[in-house]
Design a protein around this nucleic acid. Structure first.
Lengths: 193, 193
DNA sequence: TCTCTATTTGACCGCTTGTTCCAGAATGGC
DNA sequence: GCCATTCTGGAACAAGCGGTCAAATAGAGA
């Protein structure tokens, strides 16, 4: 061993994630990142490689946090259907909040980078698949519990719900009225009846 | 009058739109634009002002074209419901095509710029509202024709459908399977039954 | 044909970009 | 206490950025 780092790489990645989330990839300069992460060039490049790798690290952190939130919400004991309904409502609430205006980091990455960056595209596919799996599992649980129509294809419903949620996240960047969001939510949740 | 322009500003704006659509705002440099528009700096700045104004001009062109497509599709004589179904299917087909991978210019603008740029945010609100109006009118027509449940709120359904379409456009950037897209489409269209 | 005016052309500006590099500082193992 | 190793802080880099400007150019109206 030699001299230890003076900063926590996880905290630094967290700050990087916030910065990218706020402004997107291209519009966030390395100088911006240095300022918000509170470290200097040598440390950043020594720890994370370059801007692109740092972005991928930020995406991983995003997935970890979103994944935790989702799992806590969807895999809690009790009614699976209620969990799903709450899940959509949380997304909707976020949508009308000030915080929701920055949208979804993964969605931003999809729009900005996926068409031209294989690494980001692959990351997104994994991210998307995991989310679908998690929601589909919850739907299947709801079907076993007899709360959700058992003739539905759980995976298809998961795709449908997450698609609507993606739309909501984008809608959020346009500071929509609560009424508008509620319209979308109500019709979306009809699929579970 | 004096010396006339050697290029067609509409054509130039069209090329700018394609360039921004392909790569986004920040990642498209003025040099890129000059190359694809086939003109030199003086002409660009003299005609469009600066990069931001050119982007807004590109957005206007996008709206004009999308709007025309939508109107042709939705306001054609005959079944309004069929028109809506076709409308969603066209979006879905685009989603799995090579072209669909670049997503939606308005969606990209929303993710990349809306949270920090009032001009873009305002433009998006108008764009969104016009689309909602158009789809809602078509739904109302379907209700008059007795094809769509008249107890539904036409505006709410329009919001729901466009939300799903937004999601599809983003899904398209992840080169999804046709099966996945079809799952989403089928469940989305259930609302019209 | 001459003049007037807008367009074209490309050099040029200061600034920012992402990245590299290195001297000096700090640490843990011996 | 020394050495090997790592981290720190900042200078330096070439390339690219968005934007300006003045001279050359060419068409329309007289």
């Amino acid at each position: 061993m030699a001299r230890p780092k003076e900063f926590d790489p996880d905290d630094a990645a967290q700050e990087a994630m916030e910065a990218f989330w706020e402004r997107g990839y291209a519009a966030t300069s390395v100088n911006d990142l240095l300022a918000e992460m509170g470290l200097n060039r040598g440390s950043l490049y020594g720890t994370f490689g370059d801007k692109k790798q740092l972005f991928l690290a930020a995406l991983d952190r995003y997935e970890a946090q979103r994944g935790d939130e989702l799992r806590v919400m969807l895999e809690r004991p009790g009614s699976a259907k209620t969990a799903l309904v709450d899940f959509i409502h949380v997304a909707a609430d976020c949508c009308t909040s000030q915080e929701g205006r920055r949208g979804c980091l993964a969605g931003k990455a999809a729009m900005e980078l996926a068409p031209h960056d294989k690494d980001v595209a692959n990351w997104l596919k994994k991210f998307h698949r995991r989310n679908i799996d998690l929601v589909a599992r919850t739907i299947a649980r709801g079907q076993e519990q007899g709360e959700i129509d058992p003739t539905l294809d759980a995976r298809a419903v998961a795709r449908f719900l997450l698609n609507a949620m993606t739309g909501l996240r984008l809608l959020g960047t346009m500071s929509p009225s609560e009424a508008e969001v509620q319209d979308v939510v109500e019709l979306t949740l009809k699929v579970l009846d």
